[in-house]
Design a protein around this nucleic acid. Structure first.
Lengths: 340, 340
DNA sequence: CAATTTTACGCAAACCTTTGCGTAACTTCC
DNA sequence: GGAAGTTACGCAAAGGTTTGCGTAAAATTG
């Protein structure tokens, strides 16, 4: 039924040479005579020989493969970051195995174990929304496997990582709202357990403090990711006795949901209520009105993470590195002009 | 430097039993005595033994892994379809290796070869925008490896596949525009080489013919995917001497770009110009105005594709199957009310 | 108590490839 | 023409696991 795969042994038997000769010929080794090589190449082509990577990995103890763990590939940030990873890794002949946690801690552990057991050469990972405990990551490190964390892994100690300054980014976003005359600024944070959101909250509070406006915890709301959640959470806030006059959203999707909720209330953006997002996803500039947001260098973050992986792979006693990438405020139409 | 991984042999040496006993004990085989098992389990846990999947795959000739090839994971359709695949595959203990082609034919071939060489148990694939030739897929089939195509692979002969009726979906979309009084309907098709776009074009022409309106090739425009392309292409069309009064867009992202272009011209949606998208991406209902679109059962398509894979895996002489899933017109605010 | 069955384990081959080392046969050199 | 070097290949082990078969020792049976 199933056609048997052709192996080096089959070629060896046919040509009456040893498997080692085949193997070396296929690697174009100087140890093999020219006519022998030619004969082997011809037969390999004729029989459509393909090396068995599983066997090769077993003996070489190297897979030229790196595992990538992200919460969700459909998030623009992650998808772009993966492109950055590919940009560096593919050039060096490495493949990547992309795994999604769907924000599940359990799945994250499963993926780590699967990747380690599959003998990948390293793991580049974000962190799920549920994850509180990091021992699965330290297991990887203890096994001597290169690992780098990105984005959400910014506060995990003793691990190499690449990230942005979330506190500062949050501060800049909220300072912009304050500069444009907003007084009651809501923060739609997303999952409460995510350190990234808490860091931006610190920046939010910092900007508030700098402007001398007091922090009101009722203005901070938590929700799952996804634009629908932005919609319903913003709606609730707008029904408060003292509704906000601005929203700082943890990402553009939630920003989009927020804009829809504001429109449904019959309010105008930015005249009545301002909105600022995060990530500068490609549709942000196509929304009505165009969304003000914080740009994050996702592609570059991927490149840097890949470089860190190679540094660890190629260095005997690698240092633990931390790289902080810059963010940028992109002012569009969903926030007002700067007052005075 | 690198801590050596603990293997079955190490456990065997320590407990003075043979590796085969360890292996069987770890599988909880009836052939091994209870105390022996306990001792082995204990040591395995203590030494943090993890089986080497590479070795296991080599000997079992099975990897419990399936390769998934998509053009781009960030497309909502693909991301949702992958969730459908996971829904079925993970339950059965299978892992998936997700590969992106970024619409490149060359990368698609590379991924196919990599997956085959990695001895995956099967391949579930879409088709890149550049792909014209299918021999890399037939190679998989000839190797006796289960394979199923989805979505874009709808017109590849002699392969199992799951898809929608693109002609009919296109017809329904355009018929809706005609029913709501549109006369000059443009079609933003995306990449010209994509059979999926051409099939919907047939539906577009069919609806036109049914309504007795003649086909104008100037109203069909090709572009790369991405909302920016929708923006610029729609803009060009709006500057034509006889601009369209409706746009049928190959997906919602391009629909979003189209809406932005219409707004920039100072025209109203749907009063001046109607827009219909495709996919019902999650933000479609959050746009301003809310986008009318065609819903595609991406999650279910993933489930069906996974089921087809299992059918092939478990059946000796599997038939070639074709499954057509239904689509649904979702009427929102970007098209007008039905006239008469 | 002898014959049979069961229990619990070991041996060795297999999966496919790579590679260090060994060695014939041939070439080169003085 | 003999010593030294070169060329072209084979042998066998290694990588970690699984599994069919074989077999002592113990348990069961009549």
């Amino acid at each position: 039924m199933k056609p048997k795969r052709v192996t080096i042994k089959d070629l060896a038997k046919e040509l009456k040479v040893s498997p080692s000769t085949i193997s070396r010929a296929l690697q174009d080794s100087y140890q093999i005579g020219e006519e022998t090589k030619k004969a082997i190449w011809e037969l390999a082509k004729k029989w459509n020989y393909k090396p068995n990577l599983v066997a090769k990995r077993l003996i070489k103890q190297k897979s030229f493969t790196v595992g990538v763990i992200v919460p969700e590939v459909s998030y623009y940030f992650n998808a772009t970051l993966i492109k950055g990873l590919e940009d560096i890794l593919l050039k060096e002949g490495f493949n990547l195995i992309i795994c999604q946690t769907h924000e599940s801690y359990e799945r994250e552990i499963l993926h780590c174990e699967f990747l380690m057991a599959s003998q990948v050469d390293g793991i580049i990972s974000s962190i799920s929304g549920e994850t509180q405990q990091m021992s699965h990551f330290y297991n990887i490190l203890e096994a001597g496997m290169p690992m780098v964390l990105f984005d959400r892994g910014f506060n995990v100690p003793n691990v190499s990582k690449v990230m942005i300054d979330n506190v500062e980014a949050g501060r800049v976003a909220v300072a912009h709202l304050i500069d444009t005359g907003c007084k009651r600024i809501a923060y739609l944070q997303g999952p409460e357990s995510l350190p990234i959101g808490n860091a931006r909250k610190k920046g939010y509070q910092k900007a508030l403090a700098e402007a001398g406006v007091s922090f009101d915890r009722k203005l901070v709301s938590h929700c799952k990711f996804g634009s629908d959640m932005g919609f319903s959470n913003a709606k609730k806030m707008l029904e408060m006795p003292e509704p906000p006059d601005a929203f700082f959203c943890i990402n553009d999707r939630i920003g989009m949901g927020t804009m829809a909720a504001i429109r449904e209330k019959g309010l105008r953006i930015p005249e009545d209520i301002s909105v600022i997002g995060f990530n500068d996803e490609p549709y942000a500039k196509l929304l009505n009105p165009k969304l003000t947001t914080i740009e994050q260098p996702a592609f570059q973050m991927g490149q840097e993470a890949a470089k860190m992986f190679f540094y660890q792979l190629k260095t005997d006693e690698p240092e633990i590195l931390t790289k902080i990438l810059p963010t940028k405020l992109i002012i569009r139409e969903s926030t007002k002009g700067i007052v005075n």
